[in-house]
Each structure stands twice: as structure tokens, then as C-alpha cells.
Design a protein around this nucleic acid. Structure first.
Length: 802
DNA sequence: AGCACGCCGACT
DNA sequence: GTCGGCGTGCTC
């Protein structure tokens, strides 16, 4: 008898191990590692992943697998191992790791139904609920307030039973097709016999005589200028018939991609690509750090490396930050590799994601371009993994399992013995330090293509501006430059980092700032709805007229949301045509693309936006880039704030003058002499690296030390603090003397949704026991996590210190 | 997670 | 003496 080891979909520490089940006879072939099954678990059924099949078990009375959910494994053996490693690394449950590697729709859906086993022998009220039916859903029972007690006794008596159903959420899109139901000559005969007034039916039949193939109903309606009822009439005459066809949703259906061919490589590209090609040829695992300035042609290096991989019959994964996964980017890959490419990103609907994933699973594509989770693409013959903009924070998942795509990439690179290429103009400090120590191989591309200079950066001191009586958010210099460009019919990108600079409401008399009563952060003013909203919870109130604490009517909103900047800008430069891009204007599907197209087609002079316009965009007519408030980011409570500022400024600057026209960058700041600002304006990464490394060394930050952040939250402030203190104590006791434990301290955002948040941090160099200690601590608090509304989040090598 | 088992206080 | 509260523990 063969036995399957199954990880069940019950994310608790008590069930975080495999359970043994008998494989039903005849299903031995189907039930292999990596398939999903439905298994009886206690009184119900749950979904589970088969992780192994063996011959014997320590357990005596095994139950039997209920159903197989997949015809072929959804996880390869490599991914099963990877999942185990991932769960261990991130102190997550195995089931969480496996779920994270698959598209949403493969998660199980659970249903409960009640089945009547007798005829008319049920207690009255149950009989009423059933109303003659044999089966009702449990939801209906609950909705109509069924008597639970009576139900239980009926179950005991055996007159009803509860069925547990495990389903996959996946759906296959079906499209209605119409096709001839008779031989063509019969159709022709029918055509002759049609009454004279059946003009439309005639048109349709003639259409099918010309093209007898099945055709989508919607297309048919369009082509023949007809309606459903006409088609139905022909179906009723048995001349046509309906058929359903399963199709892939193709998110890029209405886009055509111009075929591109490899460009000749520049000297520096050639120099950078050679070691990558060698590693591909020798099937050798190595991590490359491709440090190339904006516009140095990194993408072409990626493309031609992939070409080499495809030529060897292998597959490629390309990770691109979520935010940069623009149509422009997709076009470059689809243009070169056509139908070989699958694209995975969050803007796709769950169904579309599933279809793209299926193409990979069925080996219909060889290249996947996608955001973080695309690193789990179920390829079995990987030839290269590329992570573009390696320093981007979106590669770290901010929920369980809190993994970093780079670490997963390294794991898979080792498994497949293939190169991993990390590309960036501003590598993460940790990565560059590793490259300097030869852990990674450093590939430098210091020059832009076509010998173009980086645009000159001008720093404007806003304090000076204030002293001269300019209280607006635009310096004289910036306005001047904007007007100049508009006159020359050139385009401008204005960048605003919203974080910390959103429109908050303050009383001018008493200085009181309107805050969320639950989260302790400033409320944001939304002009369109005239509401004050909290960004962390759902709290919102109408805009106030008077200050709640001093009654003054001098209460106003401050700060610069993009909306406000747009208004001010129109006031200063009335002739400007502005495209505003922020969360509000890009919420609708496709809005993002539409706005960019508008700008691309020069229907606007200024592109004004937040974070999202900083990356990957490439407009030839842009000659001026302005950054309105550099400081917002410098002052975040985060040891990486300088690094983030440097990265951001470098990236933004790269948007100007990428083509024939010379570009210019203007940075407005209150912290002119900060090294991150100064060195970013000089494009001096190496110098910045040295300076920042000194700081990191002094304050014991990465890459000199590793960090672990533990975040505790509880509705009771004292409790949250107490638990954090206890955890700090336990860590102090069990970790080595070389580790430092900071805290407990309140988290930078002290309260979210009426829960108090405390944190502690471990700084260490080498603590091999750390993960098992933390796992034990979590287990110790398991009960309270379950019942007492306590949460403990553990984040190894955190990006987000909030 | 869900559910059964089991040990204590409030009731016919 | 019984019903039902929820604290405890198990699911192959």
C-alpha cells in the first residue's frame, strides 16, 4: 500500500508537519509529490500538498485521500524543497510557503453542505429548511438561523450528514463560439429556402459558407451587424450550433509587439556580458552584480544573455520591480522573444495570472517577466535568473513568508547551476559590499550609451528661497526652467515623494494637527470628497471648519499632495498642460497606460507624480526633471533613508535627456549639504558607498551587522510592551554575547487600528541558533496569539522598519 | 481552523 | 442531579 505525506492547509504550529494518508487504489499514478489533494482532517476535509510518497507509516490507522485536485503536480520537487527552506528561513509554516509559490486561484475554497438521508423523518424545523431538497448549503442553514442543537442530534441519529467540499478557485475562461451544424451543401440549400424577409439570417449563412470555421459569437455579431436573436433563430432551425471553447485570457491581446533584433553591443556591454555567457556555457552558478548607470544599456545585456540561454534550450526568469513592469518594459521582452514570454504582475486579474502561470506550467513559454513572486515560476531547466533594479524594496515580501526574491534566486541558481544577474544603477549597499569582497562578481558599466553625459543637477536651497520671501513650493529657478521648456515645446517630469508630505490639516493658531484616533498618524485631506482619511485604517471624517481643541477657524490643510501641486502649478504657469499620476488617478485598470500615452504623444507638457514615475520610464522629449522636496525621504525613521534618497535621486535624474536633447535636473531641498543629496547630484555612487559604509560601520548596521526586527502588537499598550520586553529578555539570554538586542521601543507608527505596536531589534553577525530560538518563543506565545489578540511579526533582514 | 472532550457553576 | 459555560488538545 502506498502512503502519501501531506502538508495540510491549516496554518498553525501544531499542524506544521506532514500527515500520512493512504492513496486510494488506482490513483497511485496520479498522486505524486507536488499535487494538491483533498484529505479528511478531523471532522472535515482540507486541501493539502503531497510532499512525498512512501511505502510505510508509523501510524496505524491511516485515513484515505479523498480527492486529487491536479492532474499534474503544481509544484516541482525543487519547489517542494525550496518551500521547506523558505519556511525555515522566514519562520513561517510550510503551507504558507507553498501557497506563496502559486497563483491565488490555486488556493482552496471550502464549502460545507448538509445532506438529508431520510425522507420526511426530520424534525419540523429542519424539514422546513430543506423544503423538499436533498442538500442545502451550510451557509443557508446559518443565514436562516437553523437550530444547531437539533442539527447535531440529527447528525447523531444519522438522518442528516455534513459534507465537506474542497474546491479549487481556478476557473477556465470559456468563450461562446458559433459553428455550422450541417454540411455546407445543406446550409446552401437552407439559404435558398429562407423566406425573403429573413435578410439577416441570409447574411449570417453566407458568412459561414465563406468561413465555415467556428467563430466567437461576439465577433459574428459584429461582422454581420446582427443580434443574438437572429443567431438563435438559425440555431433553432438546426443550421448552426453553439460550442464552448476554453481559451487563455490574454492580457496583451490587443497589443502588437514589433519584432526587434539584437542590437550591436557596445564595448562595455560586451565586456559585461562575456562572463555571464561563460557561466551560461559552463552551466556554472555564479552571482553577478551588474552595476550600470541609467541608460548604460543593461536591458540589452539581459536580452542577449537570455537569447544565449534559449539557444541552449533552457529557460529564463526576469524579475522587474512591480512599479517598473510597464507596457514599455513588457514590449522590450515580447518584442524580442514573442510568444515565448509570460508576464506576471499584480495588475493582472487573478484569472489572467493563473493563465500566465499555466503557460509556464505547461512549458509553453521559456521566459517569464514578472514581479517578486515570478521567482517561483515552475521551470525545470533554468538557464539564468535576472533581477533588474536589484535594490528595489518591492522584492521583499512584507507578509508571511517574509522572503526576499534575491535569496530565492540564489537558491534556485545553485540548484540549477545557472548564473544569477543582479542589475542596478544604485546597488543595495549589502550587494555592492559583497561584490567588493568577491562574493559576487562585479560587472561595471559606467558610461551611458552613445557617449551621452548624465544631465547636470542643480540643487536649490529652499531655506534661501524662504528668506527671499518665496513661500510657494516652487523655487524661482524651477519655475523659470519650466516656462523655458514649455516655450521650447519640450517636456518636464516633476517628482514629489508623497510619503511624509501628504496633505495634513493643522491649526494655525494652536499648531494642533488632525490625527487618527486609532493610528496616531496625521489624517490626509482628500479634496474631491472633502474628507479627512487615515492611511492605515478606514477612519474618515468630514473636513472640520474649526479647530477641535481651540475652536479657531484658522484651520487649514498643509503639505503637498500631487493634487495641490497641480493647482499651485497651474496658478504659476497657466499655460502648462499637466498629466497627474498618483494613486487616485491610476486606480482604474489601464489608467496608468492611458496617462503615459497621453504624455508620450505630447498632449501634455508636464508629468507630475509620485514614486511611480521615478522608474523605468523613458521619454525622448523630456529635458527637465524637478524634485520638489528631497527632504521628505531623508527624514524617515529608517537607517536606510540616506541610501533610499540617493537611489531615488539617481533614478529620477536618469529620466532627463536620455536621447538627443540635453537634459537638466533641479533638486529642491532644505538639506543642501547632506552627502546623499550632494553625491547624488554628482552621480558618485562609489563615493556615496564609502561614506555610507562608514556610517553603517559606526552604528552597527548592515552590511556589517544583520538585523532581525520583531514587532509585537496588542490592543493593550502595557501588554504589547510587556511581551516585547519578555522577548528581548529571552533573546538576550539565549543568543550569543556578540548579539545586541535593542528595545523594546514603540514602533515608528505607535498605533494602527487601535493596536499598540512595540518592537525590538537584534543586531548580530553570526547566530546560527537564532531561528530555532525565535520559533520557540513564537510557540510559547502561541495560545495568546490565537486567543488574546496578540500578534508577533518576525522579519529577518527587514527593509521596512515601520 | 474546527470540533470533541471534560471539568466547574447555575438551574429544574 | 443535569445543562451548558468555555479551557484544552487533537487532527495521519
Amino acid at each position: 500500500m502506498s502512503i502519501a505525506k501531506v502538508i495540510v492547509d491549516v496554518p498553525t504550529s501544531q499542524t506544521n508537519h506532514s500527515f500520512d494518508y493512504l492513496i486510494p487504489e488506482g490513483l497511485e499514478e496520479l498522486i505524486t509529490p507536488g499535487v494538491r489533494v483533498s484529505v479528511p482532517f478531523g471532522p472535515r476535509k482540507v486541501m493539502g500538498f503531497v510532499i512525498a510518497v512512501t511505502g510505510k507509516s508509523e501510524f496505524k490507522k491511516l485515513r484515505t485521500i479523498d480527492q486529487v485536485m491536479d492532474m499534474t503536480p503544481v509544484l516541482t520537487t525543487e519547489l517542494l524543497d525550496l518551500g521547506r527552506w523558505l519556511a525555515d528561513q522566514t519562520v513561517s509554516f510550510y503551507i504558507q510557503a507553498y501557497q506563496a509559490m502559486l497563483p491565488q486561484v490555486l488556493k482552496a475554497k471550502y464549502k460545507k453542505e448538509i445532506e438529508s438521508l431520510t425522507e420526511g423523518d426530520l424534525p419540523d424545523h429542519l424539514e422546513k429548511l430543506f423544503a423538499g431538497r436533498a442538500v442545502i448549503s451550510f451557509d443557508e442553514f446559518m443565514e436562516r438561523k437553523g437550530n444547531y442543537r437539533e442539527l447535531l442530534s440529527a447528525i447523531h441519529e444519522g438522518t442528516v450528514q455534513i459534507n465537506y467540499i474542497v474546491q479549487s478557485k481556478e476557473t477556465i475562461k470559456k468563450v461562446l463560439f458559433i459553428e455550422p451544424d450541417k454540411e455546407l451543401y445543406l446550409l446552401e440549400e437552407a439559404l435558398v429556402d429562407l423566406p425573403k424577409n429573413a435578410q439577416k439570417q441570409r447574411v449570417i449563412l453566407e458568412f459561414f459558407l465563406k468561413n465555415p470555421e467556428p467563430v466567437e459569437k461576439s465577433k459574428l455579431v459584429q461582422k454581420c451587424q446582427t443580434t443574438s436573436s437572429t443567431i438563435q433563430a438559425l440555431i433553432d432551425k438546426n443550421l448552426l450550433r453553439k460550442s464552448e471553447k476554453k481559451i487563455y485570457r490574454n492580457p496583451y491581446e490587443n497589443t502588437t509587439f514589433k519584432k526587434t533584433s539584437p542590437l550591436p553591443l557596445s564595448n562595455q556591454q560586451q565586456k559585461a556580458i562575456t562572463p555571464i555567457w561563460e557561466a551560461i556555457d559552463q552551466t556554472r552558478n555564479e552571482v553577478f552584480l551588474l552595476h550600470g548607470v541609467t541608460g548604460s544599456g543593461k536591458t540589452e545585456v539581459y536580452l542577449q544573455s537570455i537569447e544565449k540561454v534559449l539557444a541552449k534550450g533552457k529557460e529564463a526568469i526576469v524579475l522587474v520591480p512591480e512599479i517598473a513592469l510597464t507596457p514599455q518594459m513588457v514590449r522590450r521582452f515580447k518584442g524580442r522573444f514573442g510568444g515565448e514570454v509570460a508576464v506576471l504582475h499584480s495588475a493582472l486579474s487573478p484569472g489572467e495570472k493563473f493563465d500566465e502561470w499555466t503557460k509556464i506550467h505547461k512549458k509553453e513559454v521559456k521566459v517569464v517577466v514578472g514581479a517578486r513572486s515570478a521567482i517561483f515560476a515552475p521551470f525545470e531547466n533554468l538557464g539564468i535568473i535576472i533581477i533588474d533594479e536589484e535594490h528595489e524594496t518591492s522584492y521583499k515580501q512584507e507578509e508571511q513568508p517574509r522572503y526576499h526574491a534575491r535569496e530565492v534566486a540564489k537558491y534556485r541558481g545553485q540548484f540549477h547551476q545557472c548564473p544569477v544577474v543582479l542589475g542596478s544603477a544604485t546597488p543595495l549597499l549589502e550587494s555592492f559590499a559583497r561584490a567588493k569582497k568577491n562574493v559576487y562578481q562585479l560587472l561595471e558599466m559606467p558610461d551611458r550609451m552613445n557617449e551621452q553625459e548624465m544631465p547636470p543637477v542643480e540643487i536649490v536651497d529652499m531655506r534661501e528661497e524662504l528668506h527671499q520671501g518665496n513661500r510657494s513650493m516652487f523655487s524661482k529657478r524651477l519655475l523659470e526652467a519650466i516656462r523655458e521648456r514649455i516655450a521650447k515645446k519640450e517636456q518636464i517630469v516633476l517628482f514629489l515623494n508623497r510619503r511624509g508630505y501628504s496633505t495634513f490639516v493643522m491649526c494655525r493658531d494652536c499648531g494642533d494637527v488632525m490625527k487618527c484616533p486609532a493610528c496616531d498618524i496625521a489624517l490626509t485631506f482628500h479634496k474631491s470628497s472633502h474628507q479627512l482619511k487615515c492611511h492605515y485604517c478606514d477612519y474618515q471624517i468630514p473636513m472640520v471648519r474649526n479647530c477641535p481643541s481651540c475652536e479657531s477657524d484658522q484651520i487649514r490643510y498643509f503639505g503637498t499632495g500631487t493634487q495641490k501641486v497641480e493647482e499651485a502649478l497651474l496658478e504659476a504657469v497657466p499655460e502648462a498642460r499637466i498629466v497627474r499620476m498618483d494613486v487616485d488617478t491610476t486606480r482604474k485598470k489601464g489608467a496608468h497606460e492611458k496617462l503615459l500615452n497621453k504624455f508620450q504623444e505630447k498632449q501634455a507638457d508636464i508629468l507630475l507624480g509620485t514614486q511611480m514615475i521615478a522608474k523605468g520610464l523613458d521619454f525622448e522629449n523630456v529635458t527637465l526633471v524637478g524634485v520638489l522636496a528631497v527632504d521628505a525621504m531623508l527624514n524617515l525613521p529608517d537607517f536606510r533613508s540616506s541610501e533610499k534618497t540617493f537611489q531615488l535621486l539617481t533614478q529620477v535624474s536618469g529620466r532627463a535627456g536620455r536621447h538627443k536633447l540635453p537634459g537638466q535636473v533641479i533638486l529642491q531641498t532644505y538639506a543642501k549639504e547632506h552627502y546623499a543629496v550632494e553625491l547624488a547630484s554628482q552621480y558618485d555612487y562609489d563615493q556615496f558607498f564609502l561614506q555610507e559604509m562608514k556610517m553603517r560601520k559606526n552604528f552597527h548596521y548592515p552590511p556589517y551587522f544583520f538585523l532581525t526586527l520583531i514587532n509585537v502588537s496588542h490592543p493593550n499598550q502595557l501588554k504589547a510592551m510587556e511581551v516585547t520586553r519578555m522577548i528581548s529578555k529571552l533573546l538576550y539570554k539565549h543568543l550569543s554575547d556578540a548579539a545586541t538586542i535593542l528595545g523594546p521601543t514603540p514602533s515608528p507608527i505607535e498605533r494602527i487600528n487601535n493596536r499598540y505596536r512595540y518592537q525590538c531589534m537584534v543586531k548580530y553577525r553570526d547566530e546560527p541558533n537564532q531561528r530555532s530560538i525565535i520559533r520557540k518563543i513564537l510557540q510559547y506565545y502561541y495560545d495568546e496569539i490565537q486567543k488574546n489578540d496578540l500578534t508577533i511579526q518576525v522579519d529577518f533582514e527587514p527593509y521596512q522598519l515601520m
